[in-house]
Design a protein around this nucleic acid. Structure first.
Lengths: 143, 143
DNA sequence: CTTGACCCTCCCGCCGCTGGAAGGTCTACC
DNA sequence: GGTAGACCTTCCAGCGGCGGGAGGGTCAAG
């Protein structure tokens, strides 16, 4: 093998730690590479490409479980990889949209709490109501 | 104690599981309540208020570590609770803003990948480049 | 007395890694 | 040949924020 790469070289090339690569292999996200007689892992350029694919998928927010499925599909017959990927990316896209909405709501609540905390006087009658609750963080009207 | 509440009642009142309450106590987020002779936890209305405070803080995204600090401050002298809370909420607010930006970028990348996956032909010359990389998920131009 | 709904403590699992320990191997230099 | 230091190997353990389940005690109703 002229172009065999060590795990450290692959790690640097892909911008991940060697530990992460071993972990990916352990959980089946990356296929097990060849080994030298001393037991060192030997990677091919294809192996590097696979790792980069995995990192891109992770960067898009796909779970390791899903990435494992995709990677396994890439190992077998290539048919059906794109449809699966499309499904996953679509799901991820809607999940991200949901998260954005949630974060928007959260930002509004935080801003409201911050306004209340900035003003020296509280907008609520007492710091603790009759049930002993600290109302500093309330964001809902009345209720 | 006329108004002593069991952990289950408190859990239902605050909308959390009894397990979560026990966990909060274990990690120091909630003070340890009294116990009956049989070892059952006995909560006061103040205890319920504290739990609701903790849940609100969590709902705002504060970490349990920060919530623990706030809760400890509420147990001691009340001075300084509001400034600390203000600092934490401000930090959380900027963290949320950062996350929103990141999610926005991510959404754009996902949409781009999806567009590419939808079209039957790829915009890249080959499915795998010479290094064996699957480029389905690329989002950057050239590079 | 029994049933069923509570309560208790304990340890393990999830995700996506990261850290450390303890040891083998490779390369460079003397 | 020796040795230093950088690399590699495996295994075990931990993070946050809980949840599941085991294995047992307690309490009120029938």
């Amino acid at each position: 093998m002229a172009h065999a790469l060590t795990i450290g070289q692959v790690a640097q090339a892909a911008g991940v730690s060697a530990r992460t690569i071993r972990y990916y292999e352990q959980v089946g996200v990356l296929p097990a590479p060849g080994r030298t007689t001393a037991g060192y892992r030997q990677y091919t350029p294809q192996g590097v490409g696979r790792l980069i694919f995995v990192r891109r998928a992770r960067a898009l927010g796909l779970s390791l479980q899903n990435v494992r499925a995709l990677s396994a599909a890439l190992d077998g017959p290539r048919r059906g990889v794109r449809p699966r990927l499309r499904v996953l990316v679509r799901a991820q896209l809607s999940a991200v949209r949901r998260q954005r909405v949630e974060l928007q709501v959260l930002q509004g609540q935080l801003a409201q709490v911050l306004r209340r905390l900035r003003s020296p006087r509280l907008r609520v009658p007492a710091r603790r109501d009759q049930s002993g609750r600290c109302r500093c963080l309330d964001t809902d009207r009345g209720a």
